[in-house]
Structure formats: C-alpha cells, structure tokens
C-alpha cells in the first residue's frame, strides 16, 4: 500500500500576545491508498486542527505556526503555492464537517453550491448540473433532479449531511477527511451515513481519515486507529487490537468511560487525568 499522506513530526501552536498554546506536539502517521484511518480523542486533543492543517486551512503565522512535514503524494504541502493548494483542496482532499446546517450557505440552492465546486475543478465540464444530480443520486437522495433546486432549510439534517457528502465527492477526491460527520445526527440516520461511506469507499477506492470520539463508528468504518491525547499520539494500531486490547492507560480509560448497550452492570469510570500524568 503506497502512502497517500505522510505526516512527520507535525507540530501546531497558536500564539496570542500573552501565551502560546501547543495544540499538536509532534505527531507522525500516514494514510495509505484505499485505506480508512480514524483519529480519536476528546475535545482539545488536537485532532481537528490536525485535519485542518493538512490542506493549510489554519490561520497563517504569527497566529498559528505549523512545523514538521505534511507530504501529500510526494509533495510537501508547506511549500505549495496558493494556486497549487486550490487544486488540491476539494479536488484531491475533500472535507465533511460536523454541522451540516452551518456548513451550507442558506441563500443558495444546494445544487448551485455543489456545482460551484465542480465548475472550479472541471472548467471543461459542459454540463455541471448533470454531474451534480449524479452526485446527489449517489448519496441516496431521491428525486435528485428536483432536490438540486432546494435550499438547505428545506432539507432535514440527514439530507443536509448527504448534500455535504455529495459536495465532497462530486470532484472525486482521493482522500476524504470527515470530522465528526455524524455527531449531529440521529442514530438511524448515522447508520445510513456509515453505510453510504462504506459503499462509496468500496466503489471508488477512496481513502478516509475519520475524526471522531465514537468508537462504534470507528469499528464499522476503519481499519487503523490513532488515539490522541493532549496533542500527542498515545496509541496507534489496527482497530480490533486497540479497541479490544488497548495498551495505553489513556486509551483504556477512554474506552472504560463509554456506556455500551448491554453493559449495565459495569460501572462507568470517568477518566482520572491526575493518574495519567504526562502521557
């Protein structure tokens, strides 16, 4: 498996006049072609800023400093020009964010918003509407032809998230970065979205970097998992091994505090951070 994305000693810090916050403290991992990797951690672990840094979506210095190397298909992201980056964002690496209702522009139809990305990356496409309708069909939106002209508020949360996925997939990216893609959704809708992502990954051989705190979703979608805590990777391995036989004390504590169906007798143990010290 060739590496699509190779991250070496990534460091991210945010500077204000008074203080400096090290959000990511030197992490290394890679994502292969046709591979699904999960990054799991609590809020503040640095998982979302890591995702943002991959296509330089973070604010420029001096506000935010990114160190280390991010290599995408052999090229260093830090050395790319703005125009090179624009070719990668959306076209090669696409994102889906947590809250579909705030990610969509309320004053444009959903079809228009997806078409915008298609027109940008494929100016030679004579019929972007057709491409968009196909993308909407692919994510399971019925009556896609009519839905093209719907505004975001006319769609349910699950439908909005499908639109976000359609938008991310319309340009056929090699890598999809999904940051908590189902957190705002009901479980039955979440199940549909998981199945949709599984099916699309299979049909397109697309790589996935899934950022989440939900171990259940990881086990359904990913093969490898990275556990982040306070800006560092504390454990890294195949999903089955990490979930069923965690080695790191933080991973163990994180898994022990999640309620699972049918485990009523087991007491939930909140994480005792004082015992973890500097992991």
């Amino acid at each position: 498996m060739e590496n699509l994305l190779d991250i070496r000693n990534l460091k991210i810090s945010f500077d204000s006049e008074r203080s400096r916050t090290d959000a990511v403290k030197g992490i290394s991992f890679c994502v292969g072609e046709d591979e699904a990797v999960a990054v799991v951690g609590e809020s503040g672990s640095g998982k979302s800023v890591t995702a943002m840094s991959l296509t330089r979506l973070l604010p420029p210095p001096p506000l935010c400093r990114v160190g280390g190397k991010i290599i995408y298909r052999g090229a260093d992201v830090a050395e790319m020009s703005e125009s090179e980056l624009r070719k990668i964002r959306g076209r090669e690496i696409a994102y889906i964010f947590q809250e579909p209702s705030t990610s969509l522009n309320p004053v444009f139809t959903v079809g228009y918003q997806i078409a915008e990305a298609v027109k940008l990356h494929f100016p030679e496409n004579k019929n972007p509407r057709k491409t968009v309708v196909e993308a909407l069909k692919e994510v399971g939106i019925r009556n896609a032809e009519a839905r093209y002209d719907s505004y975001p508020h006319e769609l349910s949360g699950g439908m909005q998230q499908r639109v976000m996925i359609a938008m991310a997939l319309a340009c056929r990216p090699r890598l999809l970065i999904a940051d908590e893609p189902t957190t705002a959704l009901d479980v039955t809708i979440q199940k549909q979205i998981i199945e949709l992502l599984l099916q699309i990954r299979k049909s397109r051989r697309m790589s996935l970097l899934l950022i989440t705190h939900n171990f259940g979703i990881i086990s359904e979608l990913c093969t490898r998992v990275i556990v982040m805590f306070r800006g560092k990777i504390v454990e890294h391995g195949p999903v089955d091994e990490v979930l069923h036989n965690p080695q790191n004390p933080y991973t163990k504590a994180l898994i022990a505090c999640i309620p699972r169906l049918g485990m009523r007798e087991k007491k939930l143990e909140p994480i005792d951070y004082s015992k973890l010290g500097e992991v």
Binding site: V187, T188, Q190, K191, I194, N214, F215, G216, I217, I218, S219, E220, L243, R260, L261, G262, R264
Partner: peptide, 24 residues
Amino acid sequence: ESEELCRRPQNPYTQKLIAAVPRF
C-alpha cells in the same frame, strides 16, 4: 424495564433504533 427493553425490544421502531447503535 431498561435491560429487558434493550435486550428484547418488541416494537419495530425500538428494534430499528437499537440495531442502529454502532457497537464495538
């Protein structure tokens, strides 16, 4: 009762809801 309902849901909607929870 909690355990009973989660283990043996009777209503089709409850069954669907419980089946949708991702497990590990």
